[in-house]
Design a binder for these strands. Structure first.
Lengths: 245, 245
DNA sequence: CGGCTGCTTGACCGTCATCAATAAATGTGG
DNA sequence: CCACATTTATTGATGACGGTCAAGCAGCCG
């Protein structure tokens, strides 16, 4: 059930105008006046690392944008096998208008802050601000492309290629957009545990671990602790991925 | 390039009112007057089995709905490894407003008829008929869910489960909606070759073949030729899939 | 009939999963 | 701050599933 059972509940209320995802989220095309409207109906929720945000099949009462932190979308089978089917990073949207149940499990992997709207209120907003629908369609289509790219990875890539692709993905998405210090080592902070990486890549935790060490031994990456990866030669890492045509 | 190099070009022009996908495609919510408008700007194109409809990166000049036949969306790597990332069946939409290049290769696997719109014309339509945008968003979100379900299959299911899931999928989608003759054998006509099935399931053609025979030997399915599958015990087939929770 | 293409079957092997044992990181209470 | 417990990650040994290579088979068409 969305927004139940979380112990911690930060009620910080940031003005939309100074919101970190102001220009990327579903609200990106809102003008000042519209932002005021958004400010008046939105509310924030915070989840701790590991908390369940929503479960597949739950009634979908609240729609939200991820403001900070990282969450996963996942799908699992009765016998426990699980696949992460999407990574949610700041500006990503959770839930969908026109549906009344949650389609996939949503889990916070770090502390997560959501900017929330009751579904009814959001659907009203979509009528008042058609650009919200347009932006939502754009974002859905982007996610669709991303999902399909991931299908290539899951269906066809080797374990080593999967890890390399994953590192490149994280490097891209965590970098504040077009910031290429081609001189110094690129340093990647992994938001996911080995366990979660494995379920994202369709591998086991052991294989993930082995491939990390293999890449390290081959000098493609360097590991500092378990969550920090530095990339001495970015081209070498890219070469590990025989990229889509 | 969309709509080049096809030899055969059927110019049949069906009235929207009697279109087979009238109530499922992007135009499903159009009224009679709007249908007339659609009739006046749409045009049909036909592709032969095996023909390329569009290639990744091509300029996207035409958007279309699939009216009849089956096509695939696929993604491939430089070295030739290929993954089918979507199956296009009647009523599915091809292309996306707001993009100017094709995101994935589109290939006809049977003879295919498309109901086409020049991109500009279609974007005008979206303005005149907002329900088209809404329907498009709905369809995009459905596809997104389907893509994510497929990620679970690709990442976590065994070869046998993949084949069983595939058969169930085809059975569902080819059946004219909620038609359950629980008595007699269900008969599935496969629109895809073993080759294409393999690239859809992230397997090799040999493994697909072996799993088909395995399921046959176990009495779960019966094969009549290479494209016709009959299912004596539907429950047995469903049991092969340890379904998502 | 031969030649073609698509499918099946067999023999073998490699990649990755499984099971199991450390080792490292993180947390807890004294 | 250190002993101890717990979780998380690494490493090793082994085997299974599915891939690869190769040969046969079936349907199709000239």
């Amino acid at each position: 059930m969305l927004f139940n059972d979380q112990k911690t509940e930060k009620l910080t209320h940031t003005q939309c105008a100074s919101c970190p995802v102001r220009h990327r989220a579903v609200c990106s095309r809102a003008n000042d006046q519209e932002l005021n409207l958004l400010d008046s109906v939105k509310f924030y929720k915070t989840y701790q690392a590991g908390q369940t945000i929503a479960l597949r099949g739950d009634p979908l009462e609240v729609l939200s944008s991820l403001v900070s932190g990282t969450a996963t979308l996942s799908q699992s089978m009765e016998d426990g096998r699980t696949q992460v089917v999407g990574l949610l990073l700041p500006s990503d949207f959770i839930g969908r208008p026109g549906r009344d149940t949650v389609a996939h499990d949503v889990t916070a992997v770090t502390e997560v802050t959501l900017c929330c709207f009751r579904r009814k209120a959001f659907e009203d907003l979509m009528v008042k601000m058609p650009h919200v629908s347009v932006r939502l369609l754009e974002m859905a289509l982007d996610e669709l492309d991303a999902a399909r790219d991931w299908m290539l990875l899951l269906g066809r890539k080797t374990a080593r290629e999967k890890i390399a692709s994953f590192l490149l993905l994280i490097a891209q998405r965590s970098r504040p957009i077009s910031d290429k210090p081609s001189g110094l080592d690129i340093c990647i902070e992994l938001p996911l545990s080995r366990e979660t990486i494995a379920t994202y890549l369709g591998l086991t935790i052991e294989t993930v671990s082995r491939q990390f060490t293999a890449l390290r031994k081959d000098g493609v990456i360097a590991l500092d602790g378990t969550r920090t990866v530095s990339v001495p030669d970015f081209a070498a890492l890219s070469d590990e991925v025989d990229n889509s045509e």
